[in-house]
Amino acid sequence: MKEWRGAAAICVNDKREVLVVRGMGTDLWSVPSGGIEPGESPEECCIREVKEETGCEVEVLRRLQVKQTVIKGIAVTTYYFHVEMSGGYLEVNDPDQNIEEACWKSIGEFARLSQMYPEDLPLLQNITESF
């Protein structure tokens, strides 16, 4: 079975809003994430993907979970990290042209949007509530 490994970032600001992105030509929202490149650690991937997809520079606070699933016959492993913004500013500069919009949303707003990974919502709620 083919495998894909990636990393996802959960970033919460001081207003308890979550950093989220919307894919090109879709109304589905998710946290910033992407595939791990050769020689890259999950943490390095997480930091790079957030920068590419949102313009924000982040540092990893801790690993939250590892999600394993199978999508269309591909074994998918995604490492989730709790990160905090350390620099940069919000702008989409995605070299892969996959991201159309990046913004901060309250967990209530995000819960009402169409989500790419609805199973992630409880994790996001836990992180924002612990702030």
Rank of each mutant, 00 (worst) to 15 (best):
K2M: 05
A9V: 07
C11N: 08
N13P: 01
V18H: 01
L19S: 01
V20I: 07
V21M: 03
G25W: 03
L28Y: 11
W29N: 00
S30Q: 09
S30V: 08
V31S: 06
V31R: 06
V31Y: 07
S33Y: 13
S33C: 15
E37D: 12
G39V: 10
G39D: 09
E40I: 02
S41I: 05
I47G: 07
I47K: 13
V50A: 12
K51G: 09
E52H: 13
E53P: 03
G55A: 06
V58P: 08
V58G: 12
V60K: 13
L64P: 04
Q65D: 13
V66H: 00
V66N: 03
V66S: 02
Q68W: 01
T69P: 01
A75D: 12
A75H: 10
T78P: 00
T78L: 09
V83P: 06
M85P: 01
S86V: 15
Y89S: 12
V92C: 04
D94R: 05
Q97R: 11
N98G: 09
I99F: 01
E100P: 02
E101D: 04
A102V: 05
K105T: 02
S106A: 03
G108C: 06
F110S: 01
A111N: 10
A111K: 10
R112L: 12
S114I: 01
Y117W: 14
P118T: 07
P118K: 06
E119G: 09
L121G: 03
I127M: 09
